[in-house]
Amino acid sequence: MAAAPEMRASDGDRDRVAAALREHVAEGRLTIDEFNERLEQVYQSRTYGELATLTSDLPAIDLHRLPAAVEPAPGSRPARKEEKARNLKSAWSAWAGVSAMTWLFWLLAFIGSGHFVYPWPLWVMGPWGIILLINTISGSGGQSQRRDT
């Protein structure tokens, strides 16, 4: 039996209309301001007729058959090997920059004090460098080893 416009709508009916409006925003048919106005009216609506007027200028959407997510174009995302190589290069560059800076501070302290200063930059470079070396050798490039299925 088709619902008459004067029949009272349930919370579930209002939620379905709100979901359809969200889908129309995602499709670009409604602006955020229009969506917010209509959403406010959805939850103030009491009848099927009031709900129908909120979507009367929009095409029907079957919420059970939403379009599949669009796969990115093959050339839009860099290859994994290139991405890993770029990540490793960035990590090693950061390590080298921080190491150079800490050695510069150490050198200034050594010259300024006039006597031997413990080479503390080794404690900055060492652990970080070892982790980077392990990642470089293992080929993980700082990425998790999660496999997409």
Rank of each mutant, 00 (worst) to 15 (best):
S10H: 10
D11P: 03
G139C: 06
E83A: 15
H24P: 01
V117G: 08
F116K: 03
I111C: 05
E40C: 03
S138G: 10
H24W: 02
R65S: 10
P5W: 06
N36H: 05
P121Y: 02
P121I: 08
W106Y: 12
S144V: 06
A26K: 14
A68Q: 13
G141A: 05
P59G: 03
V124A: 02
P67R: 04
G114F: 12
K81E: 09
H115M: 04
T136P: 08
S56L: 03
P121G: 10
E37L: 00
D13H: 08
D62P: 14
V98I: 15
F35K: 01
A73I: 01
A18C: 00
S113Q: 10
S76A: 15
T102S: 12
F105G: 10
M7T: 13
L51T: 02
W123A: 15
L104T: 15
A26I: 01
R46E: 11
E40P: 03
R14I: 01
R14N: 04
L54T: 00
G142E: 06
F110V: 00
G28Y: 04
L39S: 00
H115W: 10
L132H: 09
P78I: 14
D57L: 02
V117M: 09
D33G: 06
E50M: 05
A109M: 12
R86V: 04
V70C: 09
P78D: 12
L21I: 07
P72D: 11
R22F: 03
D15K: 11
S56H: 08
R14E: 02
K89E: 07
L108G: 12
